[in-house]
Amino acid sequence: MLLYILKRLFVAFLVAVTVSIVTFSLVRSAGDPAVAIAGPDAAQEDVERIRVQYGLDRPIIIQYGEWAGKAIRGDFGYSRFLNTEVSKVVLDRLPVTLTLGALSISFALLLAIPLGVLAACYPNTILDRIALTISVVGQALPSFWFALILMVFFGVHWSLFPVSGSSTMLHFVLPSIALGYYASPAIMRLTRAGMLEVLASDYIRTARAKGLLQGSILFKHALRNAVIPVVSVAAVQLGFMFGGSIVIETIFSLNGLGQLAWQSIHRADLDTMQAVILINAAMYIIATLAADILNAALDPRIRVN
């Protein structure tokens, strides 16, 4: 198991390096950074001066080496628009996004897994149809519209939850529901399909022949096998959430990574943009790594290979 984790960690590190190289070259090729720094109206000499001053005239490999050397030490450059170090801005925004992501995926799992199990236990009944409806609606609703509906009823009409900002945990309730509900249909359908398959398997018949009770059969023997593909999909969704949701963060005025990404792209704030993309990629890598390790813990057959 330890060897397996070490191997996966090494692969994750290689992925992170590759992503950083790709984003570095993409950001540099998307526009001339010297022009972006100097501004659109700057004279050609000023642009050239800035190019030399910032070392942008050197080969891109050297520029990347310099950037990577600093990034490893936690220095992601300086944002002239926000007048602070990029690492500070990111660290400032990260907790908001992480909280939102963690709460959203929890909500999605708590909603979707029981619904999926229920639907699989009573396939093609009214319960299955209700679960299906809930999931189809979740898939079909635009998340910004659902967020606004939540706001109108739970925020304004009944005044149950705050609708703007991130100062208390209560501020995260509505955004987490909006973001989590959007992620739940895939999890629910996957749980249902997995449970249906597992419940028809020989080892579930064995469990029944042993006289085990329904709860133990469903939640111990069946769910553990059915949930393995769910873990992988939930990890991708979590990675997506940890990257920050521009729509949800904007609607609920949460100052997270999503907003930061959008602002930095808007202002051609290259250092910030690059750091946000890298953090985003790192979150994906960490989430899938965690999923792989969790799956190996759930299913011993994965450990062997």
Binding site: S201, D202, Y203, R205, T206, A207, R208, A209, K210, G211, L212, H221, R224, N225, L298, D299, P300, R301
Partner: peptide, 19 residues
């Protein structure tokens, strides 16, 4: 079941829970 009547099946490869 399992207490007074036991049962074994044809396919030992799939009759045990892999997890």
């Amino acid at each position: 079941r399992g207490e007074r009547i036991g049962m074994i099946f044809q396919e030992p490869m799939t009759a045990l829970n892999p997890c």
